[in-house]
Amino acid sequence: MSPTRRQRARLGFQLPMALGLTVIWILLWGHFGLLEVVGGFLVATVVLRVFPLPPVQFDGTIRPLPFVKLVAQFVYDLVTASIQVVRIALTFGKQPMNAIIKVPLHARSDLYLTFTAELSSLVPGGLLLEVSREESTLYLHVIGVRSEADVDAARARVLRQERRLMEAIASKDELAAYRARAQGSLA
């Protein structure tokens, strides 16, 4: 990787990052004014200078419709996951069976790996134990598993989560590459 490209990737990510931090600063003060905007931007710049983040490549686009689908499905999953845990917690007598499953993902990017991991931690049956960055593989702990079929269902759910995420924010090239890999693993 040439240093210029690396630097550009870093700069491209720094500005939205600084703006995001400024927004958080304004929200923390709970008041919108010139002082908050300028002060927040200064603090954000200093923070990003002192603690620089490793460059993250993101050249995807947000597609509105799949993005709404991703968020809606996430909210639905969060609610069903909570209901499932509530049911297990309030059922007397038998203890839940669990499993630790391995889910090889198809996307090859730290960013998408992170997002998928974050999202799957809150959906039914998901507690991230270990991530293998080289192989893009997640290891999850799943609660309330009764049979091998449930294990496969949990795995399929994480993969569907990944597909929704890629459809929502990945760039065209990344999506095509991802689809090719997903097709290959199915065959």
Binding site: L78, V85, L122, L127, I143
Partner: peptide
């Protein structure tokens, strides 16, 4: 691990 399931999902939604 099961305790952590309880501590993450219903707690976040709650």
């Amino acid at each position: 691990f099961t305790r952590m399931h309880a501590a993450t999902k219903p707690q976040v939604l709650g």
